[in-house]
Amino acid sequence: NQASVVANQLIPIQTALTLVMMRSEVVTPVGIPAEDIPRLVSMQVNRAVPLGTTLMPDMVKGYA
């Protein structure tokens, strides 16, 4: 099973992502693949992302 990127904390809207905000976890449905974590650093979320939420491509500006 492929690991996805999951929020390690509440990430407020417009926040630039850092490594400490994300973790990898095998979840359903599958979100952004964990191997993309380095690419996500400094990208902004376009909505508030609660703790434990799987990051989906449409939540990160410039990802999809």
Rank of each mutant, 00 (worst) to 15 (best):
T53Y: 10
P33I: 06
P29F: 04
P29E: 06
S24W: 10
V5R: 00
Q2H: 14
G31N: 03
V30P: 15
N46E: 10
I32W: 02
P29V: 05
L51A: 14
T54H: 02
P33C: 07
I32Q: 00
N46D: 10
G52F: 04
N8A: 13
N1Y: 14
P50N: 10
G62S: 07
Q9G: 05
P33V: 07
L17R: 00
M22N: 02
V5K: 01
L17D: 02
T28Y: 12
A48M: 14
V27D: 01
R23S: 08
V27L: 04
Q44F: 15
V30M: 12
I37T: 06
A3Q: 09
V6Y: 02
I32P: 00
P38R: 11
L10N: 14
A3I: 06
A16V: 11
A16W: 10
V20F: 14
Q44K: 13
G31L: 02
L51G: 12
P29L: 05
P29A: 04
D36M: 14
V45C: 06
A16E: 11
A64Y: 09
G31T: 01
R23M: 06
Q14M: 11
P12T: 07
P50W: 05
M59H: 08
V20Y: 12
A48P: 12
A3K: 13
L17N: 01
M56P: 01
N46T: 13
T15L: 05
G62Y: 09
S4D: 02
P29K: 05
V6A: 03
T18L: 08
R23L: 06
G52W: 04
P50H: 10
A7T: 09
Q2C: 06
L19E: 10
K61G: 08
V5T: 05
P57T: 05
Y63M: 05
E25I: 06
G52P: 00
P50M: 14
L40K: 00
A48H: 13
R47M: 12
L51P: 13
G31W: 03
V5G: 01
P12D: 09
D58S: 15
G52E: 03
P38T: 11
D58Q: 09
T54V: 10
A34S: 12
V26R: 09
R39D: 07
Q2M: 11
N8F: 04
L17A: 01
Q2A: 12
L51W: 13
V5A: 10
T18Y: 04
G62M: 07
D58C: 08
P38K: 13
M56G: 04
V45I: 06
A7H: 01
D36V: 09
R23T: 08
V5H: 01
Q14N: 15
P12M: 07
V20G: 14
V49C: 05
A7P: 01
T53W: 13
T53A: 12
P38G: 13
M21D: 04
G52K: 03
T18N: 05
A34M: 06
Q44W: 09
V41R: 06
G31S: 00
A64D: 10
Y63Q: 03
E35F: 15
P38A: 10
L17S: 00
I32A: 02
M59A: 06
G31Y: 03
I37E: 02
I32R: 02
V5F: 03
M56F: 09
L19C: 07
T54Q: 02
R47P: 03
D36E: 13
S24Q: 08
Y63C: 05
A3G: 10
V20T: 12
P38L: 12
M43N: 04
M56S: 07
A64S: 14
N1W: 13
T18R: 11
M43I: 04
A16I: 11
S42G: 15
P50Y: 09
V45S: 04
R47E: 09
A7C: 04
E25V: 10
E35Y: 14
P12C: 05
L55N: 00
T53F: 11
Y63F: 11
M59C: 05
K61T: 15
M21W: 03
V26Q: 10
I37C: 04
T15G: 05
S42F: 08
I37R: 05
G62A: 10
S4P: 01
V60G: 02
M43Y: 10
P38N: 13
D58P: 06
V20R: 14
R39S: 14
L40C: 04
M21A: 04
V5S: 03
G52V: 03
T18F: 04
K61S: 13
P50A: 10
E25S: 12
S24I: 10
L51I: 13
A64R: 05
A16C: 07
V20L: 14
L17W: 03
M21V: 03
M22H: 02
P38F: 13
R39T: 10
T18D: 05
V49R: 00
Y63T: 03
I37G: 03
P57V: 06
Y63I: 05
Y63R: 01
L55G: 00
N8E: 06
D36H: 13
Q14K: 14
M43H: 09
Q14C: 08
V6L: 08
G52D: 07
G62Q: 08
S24C: 07
V5N: 01
A16Y: 12
P29R: 04
R39H: 09
A48K: 09
T53M: 11
R47T: 13
V49E: 03
L40T: 00
V60W: 02
P38C: 08
N8H: 06
L19A: 08
I32F: 01
A7S: 11
N8I: 06
V6G: 02
V60L: 12
N1A: 15
M59I: 05
